[in-house]
Write a protein that binds this DNA or RNA. Structure first.
Lengths: 262, 262
DNA sequence: GAGTGGTCTAGACCACGCG
DNA sequence: GCGTGGTCTAGACCACTCA
């Protein structure tokens, strides 16, 4: 079946190693979590599918249900799986998620959350290029490595609102076309899951206020001199591997970026 | 000692109530959590202090340690308390928090996180005024109710970087002075805890790109025409009671607003 | 009614902090 | 050495889903 975890250090470093005395105690449930994560990563269960029940996993790993439970609790807290009482635990997916556009924090100023429905996409460009230095750095590639670059406009209620440039590692996204970017119904990240097996798991954003150049202003139907929100996002798959760089310009005259702090 | 929870619905609504059939099942640990929250709210334990041990709370509420544990787990996840192994569980405070400025997401562009040290504060103004309509709405007051209004500049490494206008309910912040705003070392929210017993627990922000007027630009030493980040924050105490409206203008030429998505 | 996740308990032992 | 939170177990029962 599978490797059995031992109730000892996951990867016990030799005592007296270079520099610090790392305690390196790893609770059992963390080891189980790592094993489940590994299976997720290797695609043993596909996005949207159910993973084995807690009892099954407990039997497989030779631990109690409670230990598996705590492992899954953490995975659920990180949005990697979704629990549904009475049904099972499912691999998280950007497709059938109750919140469409999980990573998009732009909301219309009118309180009606997402009444405006899904965004209309206009793909302006999608082609293979060589990574510039900063793109390469963001994606952990080397300058000149192949990347796919796309540019598109998202419109809400007919109004162009977001202009995005997207860079993806060429290796993982071989054969991505403008038609694919435009044609897929639903979140682009769901398309990435289905067509390329790439699951975005978390992301970081750097936000600034900028003035668009004339081309950008024109594309967004915005008077020259109107400031825009610059949102640079790096999205990661499992193991903190960066798989997307996205530079967005958001109009904030009709929308705002919403953030919850705690 | 204290009221005992019952293993029944916390506040069982009469069946066949108006409209929906609310199931209204409340697990024991949620009831315990609510009771602990109530004690926090009533100031039974002050910020920074330890709350009773899990065993004590279990005895007090006549439940098992595991149930108390789960209640505290959730409170810790919401940053209302902090657990420290071997020491106890402590009421969260903005004062001695490992991350100073818990709600401030502006980071210097140079990777060195907070090397620049604490911000220098310049308080330009602090006086009692009557709430305008929009301030009143944000703070759940009535137009014309007394509020304290303050304006200040935060500088990092000598450079003015943030211009903030702050509105606080006059009732809870009676007697707040400019000296207090300027003099306190450490986060302003820590001062609110100490001097007014008001603990900010969570906040929401709406972010936009704007052009400052000439006064704002001058205060921030920024050339006219430089776009700024407009950050409108509403901070809440317990029970989602709004206790602060803050409108900030952030310079994003040397800093950026950083956000983690998951 | 069978199977799933969710709650609750009781008890044992471990890691940590401090006197 | 003691008290704290942290882990792990085993078993019972509950709530939800679906056939």
């Amino acid at each position: 079946m599978s490797s059995l975890p031992f109730n000892v250090d996951a990867a016990a470093p030799p005592p007296g190693g270079a520099g610090a005395v790392t305690p390196a105690f790893s609770p059992l449930y963390q080891q189980i979590k790592a094993l489940i994560l590994q299976s997720l990563q290797q695609g043993e269960w596909k996005p949207g599918e159910a993973i084995p029940s807690e009892m099954e996993l407990a039997a497989r790993f030779r631990v109690s249900q409670g230990t598996v439970r705590k492992a899954i609790d953490e995975l659920a807290a990180e949005n990697l799986v979704m629990r549904r009482q009475g049904k099972g635990t499912f691999v998280a997916t950007h497709a059938e998620q109750h919140v469409q556009y999980r990573f998009l924090k732009l909301l219309p100023d009118t309180g009606d959350a997402r009444v405006e429905g899904p965004a209309q996409r206009t793909v302006l460009e999608c082609r293979r290029v060589r990574a510039s230095a900063d793109v390469a750095r963001a994606l952990a590639l080397r300058s000149g490595d192949p990347v796919v670059q796309a540019r598109r406009i998202l419109s809400f209620a007919g109004e162009p609102t977001i202009l995005e440039d997207i860079w993806l590692p060429g290796q993982a996204f071989k054969g991505l076309t403008a038609e694919q970017m435009a044609g897929y119904q639903g979140p682009t990240y769901a398309m990435f899951e289905l067509d390329f097996g790439v699951r975005m798991v978390r992301a970081e954003e750097k936000i600034r206020a900028v003035l668009p150049d004339s081309e950008q202003a024109q594309l967004l139907h915005t008077p020259a001199g109107t400031p825009l929100l610059s949102v640079e996002r790096i999205a990661y798959t499992y193991n903190d591997v960066p798989m997307e760089l996205r530079r967005g310009l958001y109009r904030t005259d009709t929308h705002h970026y919403h953030n919850e702090l705690s």
